[in-house]
């Protein structure tokens, strides 16, 4: 049984000019111990579809799907109270801006321990010990002292490590990483990606990696979903996606990588759709 299964997910936002469809019929599956990457440009609906899974969308959003189950439980009919027991415990999420996603008014130790208290009901000493253990696991030096640091006293890479520590605090079955390294330097990006892949293998988690960076996909994913304007363009295992992309959009994305530049000019998406063919029509299911 798949860990997360989504069929025909549609997310619409109410705007002054009518409904805006951000996600348009996306289906995907994540198995245990699998890393799925969702790639797309801004506005492709990749974050919105995962926020819908987490139940973090504002009230203006209308979420419909034929099926949305996590570990056999239906996420569509779940009450808010039940959802809160799953979110943060069995499904955890890491966001793009590590410094913005931590609360500046509390120490990182308090924020990690809050998760442990809420979901696991651990006592004070146990929480402290577990928090130190977690910070050690994500590679922060002097963990016992760093627990009393505030987010502004840490670097961006360290804040992201704290976010990862919070996310894995309850040994989640599924970890959703939303552009976890976009705000970081390449050398730090490498460290964070290595850490995520290592933790994923150790804990046997399923992981969804949301990114727009093809390099990150190549370095982490088992399977890849390519999204464009809310629709799924292509789904393939990572090797065949890079070796043999089927959809025109994926071809265009790969060609736009400066690494693959052959001539003087970089091909752009428009070059692949000169004949005016509707890009969605080129989708391969």
């Amino acid at each position: 049984m798949a860990l997360l299964e989504i069929e025909n997910l549609v997310v619409e936002f109410q705007t002054t000019t009518g409904m805006f469809r951000a996600v348009d019929g996306v289906s995907l599956k994540v198995d245990q111990r699998e890393v799925l990457a969702i790639v797309g440009e801004s506005g492709s609906g990749k974050s919105v579809s995962m926020l819908a899974v987490m139940g973090l969308l504002p009230w203006t959003a209308k979420v419909t799907a034929d099926k949305m189950t996590f570990n056999g439980r239906d996420l569509l009919t779940l009450s808010d109270a039940e959802r809160r027991k799953i979110v943060g415990k069995d499904i955890a999420m890491i966001f793009q801006e590590p410094i913005a996603s931590l609360n500046p008014c509390y120490t990182v130790g308090f924020q990690i321990e809050e998760v442990l208290r809420f979901h696991l009901g651990l006592g004070r000493k146990e929480r402290r010990a577990r928090a130190i253990e977690l910070l050690t696991a994500v590679g922060i030096p002097n963990p016992a002292e760093r627990l009393d640091s505030f987010p502004h006293q840490m670097s961006g890479g360290q804040c992201q490590r704290v976010m990862i520590a919070m996310a894995i605090a309850c040994n989640p079955k599924l970890l959703i990483a939303d552009e976890p390294t976009t705000a970081l330097d390449v050398t730090i990006q490498k460290q964070i990606l290595d850490l995520l892949v290592k933790l994923q293998a150790e804990h046997g988690m399923g992981m969804i990696m949301i990114t727009h960076n093809m390099g990150v996909v190549a370095e982490t994913a088992d399977r890849v979903v390519v999204q464009y304007k809310g629709r799924k363009m292509e789904e393939a295992d990572v090797l065949s996606l890079f070796e043999n992309p089927r959809s025109n959009y994926t071809k265009a994305l790969l060609a736009a990588l400066p690494d693959n530049a052959t001539g003087d000019r970089l091909p752009t998406i428009a070059d692949y759709f000169k004949d005016g063919s509707e890009i969605a029509g080129a989708a391969v299911s």
Partner: peptide, 24 residues
């Protein structure tokens, strides 16, 4: 270090990574 940290998006390095992963 900088060169080593830059993610590589060519099939050969993906194949190498998958091989490492399966071996582990």
């Amino acid at each position: 270090t900088l060169f080593a940290a830059t993610p590589k998006a060519d099939p050969a390095s993906i194949r190498a990574r998958l091989a490492r992963k399966n071996a582990a």
